[in-house]
Design a protein around this nucleic acid. Structure first.
Lengths: 151, 151
DNA sequence: ACAATAATCTCGCTGAGCGAGAGAATAATC
DNA sequence: GATTATTCTCTCGCTCAGCGAGATTATTGT
């Protein structure tokens, strides 16, 4: 591993950025009585809600790599905090739908709002062509990591 | 939050990338009988080893946001796995130095090696100017997240 | 010598997540 | 249309990571 090469600098930057984001999330979670897993679940649920997708315990557990027992515990926790609600699916009554409460939206806003505003502001110092390059770069890196995950 | 804006796409890309990297790490850890925290500790120790820095339990715990009891447990685990070794500092004998074993280097190589090679290869499809832009971009984003962590 | 400070470890505990399997609803096969 | 197979969720008992409080050992200042 040659540290002097430019690509290695970029690899370290990528890693450093993910570390910072993780720490940011962990600290936010801690301040609000959540666990890192709870926050990840919340993010997933909010994304799904915005996309209009139905999330069931099974799907949530799969996304977070938890088994069914752990997933039940997670949902119990979030429900106890008043962030989500269980509701039987009337069509297929084996299923349970997970619905996010308004309080969860607000929490998500508190978490992301400020950070996103700051990130977008920082992006303002780049011109359109540079942002396009950054997007291409991030897409390429995401693709590589995704591919590496499939062995 | 307007999804159609280009900056928002970039924010989501950043988040998606960190998620992918986290999952990659978690899956690697699981396959090798490690916990996510163990892997993070290993990365920290390997970085320090390459930089020639002495790592003590106190410093490690601070970096990972663990208290002293949790840190002791973590070090016990890593030592039991033969990845690190404790050694009293002869200068200040209150201190313990954490030394990484060769096996840990190999594990780190197994973890990073392939992924880094793939990432660097993907960077080959960008010219020098584009890579410089990507670096500036990542630096700017890292700075914003870091600043946000300090309230 | 004798506090005061620093670094690490021990003890007891809480709780997240796992494995195994139960319970309830739906789908498939005869 | 009864019986078996399948799907989704939940319960139970357990393990172990990490916490709070405090003990232990080493160093530094007066």
């Amino acid at each position: 591993m040659d540290e002097s090469e430019e690509p290695m600098q970029l690899v370290h930057l990528l890693r450093g950025l993910t570390v910072e984001l993780d720490l940011f999330g962990a600290e936010f979670a801690g301040r609000h009585g959540l666990h890192p897993t709870d926050l990840r679940a919340l993010i997933h649920l909010l994304d799904a809600a915005r996309a209009g997708t139905v999330v069931t315990p099974g799907r949530l557990g799969e996304a977070l790599r938890l088994n069914s027992a752990g997933t039940t515990g997670l949902i119990d926790r979030l429900e106890r905090l008043g962030l989500i609600r269980r509701e039987r699916d009337p069509a297929d009554r084996r299923r349970v739908r997970l619905l996010v409460e308004d309080q969860a939206m607000e929490l998500g806003q508190a978490f992301f709002g400020r950070l996103i505003a700051d990130l977008v502001a920082a992006m303002g110092r780049f011109d359109a062509g540079e942002l396009a390059t950054a997007r291409r770069f991030l897409l390429a890196m995401t693709e590589v990591v995704g591919a590496a995950r499939e062995e």
